[in-house]
Design a protein around this nucleic acid. Structure first.
Lengths: 217, 217
DNA sequence: AGCAATATTGGACAATCTTCAAATATTCGT
DNA sequence: ACGAATATTTGAAGATTGTCCAATATTGCT
């Protein structure tokens, strides 16, 4: 794992400034895109001078890395909150995670941030690394329920099913996310996802997953 | 629909130069990302001077628009080729489209281009417009088969199912696409997609799609 | 071959970018 | 409240960007 530089800011004021910079940076990325992600726009966004931003984050890359780590940490917390729902069966939990994930995808924050992240991951090893780590956790959460629903699957097969469910849900982002062309169909999409993915988890067999795929090709 | 400027290049040489510029521009976007998408890198990629690129495309935005339109046109052709497979049932065709789409997603070209496009669509109305148009065609193709498989569905319900299948497949791009962390699981993903999506098309009812989603929330 | 239209070169330009360093202001333990 | 550590401002260096222009080379029609 590639380490991000430790978060700067020793005095109370400096620490608060760093907070403002990180928030402004995230806002710029969400509202204006990677193209507008410059020190000047970030500084303007939090009423600061460029030099000050440059002082707290001597290299721009540091800012990106710290920002990304803090942002994904907040998503980790969100993910953990999904898990802590007592008194539900594994199937109900899986259905709930699906609903909550698709709900979150509809926010402007998630819609914009993750599409940007997927693009950045093409070139930046750091971003790619963090994206992989984050979704590994998502797979774990989903996989836990899948394993309970379908006890015949091996751990690797469980992960494959979790990966399928997670990736399929994420696929809604560019199409049914915030202000995307088919955003109004998200309720229907969610209904289909709940039905389809739960059914898959229940009924998929090792035999299915070993499919040679020579029949249709 | 936002019109792209007409393609420049009058003489044979000029036209060929425009070709090289467009190819170089696409290569830069695929290989080096949106960050490196500058006139100078594009010019260097096709052994030209910046002034010449600027002469054929007086504004950078023109280059982007023409490039995007030509690129999506090539994907349109690819899509049409998928359709022209004779002697197959609707179910077999749907399964085939799923396999071919997921195959294409594994290419570096598609993996990188579409992730970049989804990000650019957040800020550029033009890109968003073209992305919407392209996937509308994808939905049409898939929807045609879905309608044949499940004749009880209304046209809008057919589109919802096609949208679900398409978006779910696209979701594999950032995770199982070219050199992505779980690229080695694409065969399993494809097997699940074929089984799961075909089953959905067959069995989904209007009642399912009208799901109120109050039960699990 | 001649000639107007088109293409290419090379450089200039202003605007932007990141990074840095010196000067000034603020904070906080003592 | 003093003083060292930290934060902020200011200004500027150096690089890169898109755009433009005049000079030159090439093309393709008559």
């Amino acid at each position: 794992m590639i380490l991000a530089p430790s978060r700067p800011g020793i005095y109370a004021r400096g620490s608060e400034t760093v907070d403002q910079i990180l928030k402004a940076a995230l806002d710029v990325l969400i509202d204006e895109g990677a193209d507008a992600f410059t020190l000047r726009r970030i500084a303007a966004r939090c009423d600061m001078k460029v030099g000050n931003v440059s002082y707290h984050f001597p290299r721009k890359e540091m800012l990106i890395q710290v920002m990304l780590d803090e942002m994904l940490e907040s998503y980790d917390k969100l993910l953990e909150e999904m898990v802590r729902k007592p008194g539900l069966t594994a199937e109900e939990r899986l259905k709930l995670v699906i609903i909550l994930c698709l709900e979150d995808i509809q926010t402007k924050r998630t819609t914009h941030l993750f599409t940007e992240l997927w693009a950045l991951a093409n070139q930046s090893e750091f971003v790619a690394d963090r994206v992989r780590l984050f979704y590994s956790k998502v797979h774990e959460v989903i996989g836990e329920y899948v394993a309970q629903i379908n006890t015949a699957l091996t751990p690797d097969e469980v992960h494959s099913v979790a990966l399928f469910i997670s990736a399929s849900m994420e696929g809604s982002t560019p199409f049914l996310g915030h202000q995307k062309p088919w955003a109004h169909k998200m309720p229907v999409f969610t209904a289909m996802a709940a039905i389809s993915f739960v059914h898959l988890a229940k009924t998929v067999t090792s035999r299915d997953l070993a499919g040679l795929m020579t029949e249709a090709a």
